[in-house]
Amino acid sequence: MDPGVTLPPPPPGQGNLRPPIPNYRLAMLIFLVAETMLFTGLMGGYLVLRYSVPMWPPEGQPLLPPGAGTVNLALLAAASLGIQGALRSLRRGASRGALRGLALCLAAGLGFLLALGLEWSLLRAEGLSLDGGGTYGALFYALTGCHALHVLAVWIWTVSLLVLAMRGRLLPGRLGTVEMAGMFWHFVTLAWLFLFVILYLS
């Protein structure tokens, strides 16, 4: 721009207007919509294959344990609550509460990943493997594996937030990244709820 040109001043009272929805929140919403479509496609494929056969699970294949799915759902809900509590504490300027919330979120997220890994190994021992489980095994590992990758990604993101919080770099006016991570945690929790219903309960 030509440095000699000066822009007219904004109308009175409108010089500092901010959009009703911050850009980071809108961007995260768009990203989560795309992620939802990914899971929708996977679940749609599952529904076609699941209801195309008269018997499910196929003969000789183990039933998925609903208890494990419930525990995983509770762990993800705890992670969501943890990061939401951390965000609330950071807005109040309570760094100790924020650290506690982030630690709870990380512990619950790690618990979810470990519990899912344990469930996979137990099911594999019962004969539900990628190579020998047929469509049933492929669908189960594809859906839960894709979800676990998302949980792992947001878990790593939360570790970075914990490091920032410990260094005192998460200030009350600049919490967009914490809110975005929180939205992602809520998303993975909600996605697991749907996966739990269609995989373990239907």
Binding site: G13, Q14, L17, R18, P19, P20, P22, Y24, R25, P172
Partner: peptide
């Protein structure tokens, strides 16, 4: 909803707080 809330809270174009806060 967000736009309506912003209009109700600050009807005369007053600058509001950071929506993230």
């Amino acid at each position: 909803h967000a736009f309506r809330k912003a209009r109700v809270s600050f009807p005369d174009g007053e600058p509001g707080p950071d929506p993230g806060e």
